[in-house]
Design a protein around this nucleic acid. Structure first.
Lengths: 159, 159
DNA sequence: CTAGATGTTCTGCTCGACAGACCATCGTGT
DNA sequence: ACACGATGGTCTGTCGAGCAGAACATCTAG
């Protein structure tokens, strides 16, 4: 028990706190949107990504494919997205934004940009940019690739 | 729809991805520990904080107090912590580490430090330090204080 | 044309989290 | 001393999110 850390120095703790705080303010902003923050992410992905089949969306956003089904059900019921048959594969459905979905997305983006700044308020604008950039670089690596390489087994250090 | 962002530039997306990735590798390391990663955080908090009453722990870790009850139940059943009567307040229980709990915590800290480095692998050591420092500063602000100040209502910008 | 793989949906189930009630105890006021 | 509300901890009931597994349609390979 040589140098046990405080909770505050734990990466998982900080990560959880910030993620939870962000989630909370984000939920206020997307109130009423089916699926909450995830519904928003589906809208963004559907607007940008070209190969927006349900499965591709699911693994990009890190949700189960069975969840994506009723997530899109709700967004479609709200008139924000449409399921179009994939011309190349009749099993797949391509998820595309409707016009009202685009307008809604535009509004949500504005709101969430503010919410993010709100969470990052304790940092200077330059520090916010640094944090965003670093987080994005960490987030962009393929999680499967990362998990493939085992954690080093040589636990030889003192405690 | 002037400049709609990609999903990757969304802070919530990056935050969620990194938090999930960290959670995954962390869960591998704490396998067998009651309560998973949260159990670990309870151990850390119980080891460091002096005023470690259950309610204080709960709000420090951001969990409901009813959850903290059976969380500590399990840790106690595993012989890692003890509930001691608070000499000053007979309603409260102070959560203290047992000897085996301390040893276990020591081992877990070593494992998790490696797991964290594993998640942050795409960054240089200096960048890792920067990211940790920035996240901690954001995480340390009182969430209630932050939520008290409303998000600015002047949404005058163009989209 | 058969056999296995893949995209989507549906069903059933489990588990975690919260609300609410409940008990013991504290602090305050009278 | 006593009564009252507030607080820490525990228990019960309930609800919803998410996953496994099966079912169905379709693709691809041989």
């Amino acid at each position: 028990m040589a140098t046990p850390q405080r909770v505050e120095s734990d990466l998982g703790w900080a990560l959880g706190r910030v993620a939870r705080a962000h989630l909370r303010v984000a939920q206020e902003q997307v109130a009423g949107l089916p699926g909450g923050p995830r519904g928003y992410q589906v809208l963004v992905a559907a607007a940008r990504e070209e190969s927006s089949t349900q499965l591709a969306l699911a693994q990009k956003l890190g949700v189960d494919r069975t969840v994506m089904t009723y997530l899109i059900d709700e967004l479609q019921a709200a008139g924000l997205v449409e399921r179009r048959p994939d011309p190349a594969d009749r099993r797949a459905r391509r998820v595309v934004l409707t016009e009202t979905g685009g307008a809604r997305l535009c509004d949500l983006e504005r709101r969430l940009r503010e919410a993010e700044q709100h969470v990052l308020a304790p940092l200077t604008p330059e520090e916010q940019d640094v944090l965003r950039a670093l987080l994005q670089r960490v987030a962009e690596v393929d999680p499967d690739t990362a998990s493939a390489c085992e954690v080093a087994r040589d636990l030889g250090q003192e405690c």
